[in-house]
Amino acid sequence: MGHILQQKGKASLERVLAALLLPHKKLYEQRDQGTDQEVLFFSRVSTPERHCSLTGQQMAAIMNDEVFKVFTTHATIVLGKVLLMGPLTAYYRFSRGAFANEEDVAQKTAEDGKDGKKLLRTHPDVERVRRCHQNDLETAVPFVLVGLLYTLTGPELSSAQLHFRLFTGARLLHSISYLGALPQPCRALSWMLGMGINFSMVCRVLYTVLVL
């Protein structure tokens, strides 16, 4: 009798454990080229390897999303332009003979036997490039951060393309206007357009996920 009860208790415990370890189905909607597709993910309470596999599937789904692809393209273009401003500043410093640190002119002083401190000066062209670079950092970094959050809110592809294309075009026009000393309001309008796009994405993110 006791043996039978022990077997029944063991069977009951096995059923409870099996129920706890059954996969829980989670249904997600994935928007692909304007059509809703249902993607089924399974999560188990098991090993870390299973969680890593799920993470890989989710990351692959994100990388294949059209909105994310558009964002990645334009973010790379904008950041690439920001990176180019550093070498451009160095070029203007050497070509204009305007340096900011004593060690920068120490070798030139030893070679020419002249007072290198005369090269420790500012030049309008160098300062213009530096200001353009600073403005890029103030605008492009928020674009990348807010733009990433914006893509996670599931915007329409056409709306996302409009935001990203306008921002990229505005920043390119801003740099051309700044470095080429184009008359105002070319630079001001391009700056305001870029800032407006950033604020538009901020509003979209807050409207979608605001929790206080």
Rank of each mutant, 00 (worst) to 15 (best):
R50G: 05
P185R: 04
P124Y: 11
L152Y: 12
K25P: 00
K26P: 00
H74E: 15
V202C: 14
V141A: 02
S200L: 07
A160Q: 02
F167Y: 07
G116S: 07
A19T: 10
E156P: 01
P155G: 02
L193W: 04
S177I: 02
R128E: 13
M195C: 06
Y92E: 05
L79F: 10
G2P: 10
V141K: 00
L120D: 11
V126N: 09
M201N: 04
A90R: 06
V202S: 10
L210Y: 14
A60S: 14
L148I: 01
F99V: 05
H123F: 09
Q57E: 15
E138Q: 07
T139W: 01
L193V: 15
L17R: 11
A60E: 15
Q7H: 08
R44E: 03
K108I: 15
G97F: 03
R50K: 09
L54M: 09
A188C: 00
A170E: 02
C132E: 07
K25Q: 11
V67D: 02
P48A: 04
T109C: 09
G147S: 04
Q7N: 06
G86D: 10
R93K: 15
A19K: 12
H163I: 00
T208Y: 08
Y150Q: 05
H123Y: 08
T89G: 06
A181N: 09
Q134T: 02
Q107W: 11
A188G: 01
A160M: 02
V16T: 05
G80T: 09
D115R: 08
L79S: 11
L148N: 08
A181Y: 01
M85A: 15
S200T: 09
H174T: 00
C186I: 02
A90T: 10
I77P: 00
N64E: 15
T151E: 09
Q107T: 09
A106P: 00
V78P: 00
K81I: 03
K114V: 08
K10Q: 14
L212G: 03
Q30F: 05
Y178W: 07
Y92S: 03
L40H: 02
T55G: 14
V126A: 07
M1K: 14
T89N: 09
T72H: 11
L88W: 12
A61I: 07
N198T: 05
R130W: 07
